[in-house]
Write a protein that binds this DNA or RNA. Structure first.
Lengths: 198, 198
DNA sequence: GCTCACATGTAATCCGTTACATGATTCT
DNA sequence: AGAATCATGTAACGGATTACATGTGAGC
């Protein structure tokens, strides 16, 4: 049975105490979402695979007449997770797939004022992400820290700090571009005649 | 004709002066690779789609008897690229798909010494990425800066700085874990005598 | 009573990578 | 002479998202 990274996401979440597929999805949304997301359509078949492999126990755990399957990790599952943690990630082609960075990369195709607008947008988004991590993700990670799981909090802090770093970087870039724009304004408006420009 | 992010990658690279499919792939390997990679199997069909849409010109440009197709961007292509640059990225589920961060997230499943080893690995990888960006990517970006394309260099510097930031962060985390390990060593070995430590 | 959250799945589709297939040129 | 690079494509596969399909429980 071949396990992929997304299998270990599900298995790891079971280990952290998320017992239903639905709960696993919810947990990823508030914790690993930024660097590794998943969907219910992946979680359910994956849980089935993991169970077939003997990495989880499964039992009916209905809530009233609403069916629910409760999974827990087995010792085989723990060992499989540890083996994966010890293994090196084959560094795939991309690390970040970030469409916004690609936009910045090609931003020279825009006139200066619009370059500035683009950077402002990226700045705002990085700030939003930072804030979301600080107000939502870090508290959620702290909540599970008591149970001996320290690293979700570690990762949340790293994420927030990284977004903060990027936001600050965008802020400086924004200032640079603003200067460039105003210098251009002066030289265009100044000697003798003004030119209208959109 | 619906264009996807990878279409704009190809179109943008044509705009930056990469004229053959092969050249486009090479250009992405040295510039956008970390945040947006592609493969030849994507580039060639994409170039065909872009040309059908009227966003490029295409002409035979053989080198000896080795065939080569030379693409250049058209004004329609420029406008399509600008429209995409102005549009907001639908913030997809994941921003970074990073298996290593996921490993750190679940690292509590390992004994302390192995947690430390994992973080050391992540630290080293971040340093390697930083160094690669500084020695390979930034110089390559500087080389095209003269032609009025400033932002590839901007992005390269942002990338290098971000990896540096993360490497420093991992370094501190490493130090913390090392302390935790040695504290545990002491309490296990006995209060009173020191243990050899590298 | 209505809406939202909880809960589980399948089907269709899209997108990207890997592998395959072929050949010329340049460098060592 | 052989290896690495330049050059263009197609086929197969795998993995992830979106849409579809259905139903219960809790809160307002």
């Amino acid at each position: 049975m071949k396990l992929r990274p997304s299998s270990y996401l599900v298995l790891g979440m079971v280990r952290l105490g998320a017992r239903s597929g639905y709960a696993i999805k919810k947990a990823t949304d508030i914790s690993t979402r930024v660097f590794f997301s998943t969907s219910l359509a992946q979680v359910y078949p994956e849980l089935d695979r993991l169970h077939t492999a003997g990495f989880t126990t499964r039992q009916d755990d209905p809530h009233g007449r609403r069916s629910r399957l409760a999974y827990t990790i087995t010792e085989e599952g723990e060992e499989a997770l540890r083996a994966w943690l010890r293994s090196a990630a084959r560094s795939g082609p991309t690390l970040f797939r970030d469409e916004n960075l690609m936009r910045l990369f090609f931003a020279d195709a825009l006139p200066p004022e619009e370059q500035l607008m683009l950077v402002q947008r990226l700045h705002q988004q990085a700030r939003d992400a930072q804030q979301w991590m600080e107000t939502e993700v870090i508290p959620a990670a702290q909540a599970i820290e008591s149970r001996g799981h320290h690293h979700p909090h570690t990762v949340a802090r790293l994420g927030a700090a990284t977004y903060r770093f990027m936001a600050d970087w965008y802020e400086r870039l924004e200032a640079e571009l603003r200067q460039k724009c105003s210098r251009q304004d002066e030289s265009e408006t100044q000697p003798g005649h003004a030119r209208s420009q959109d």
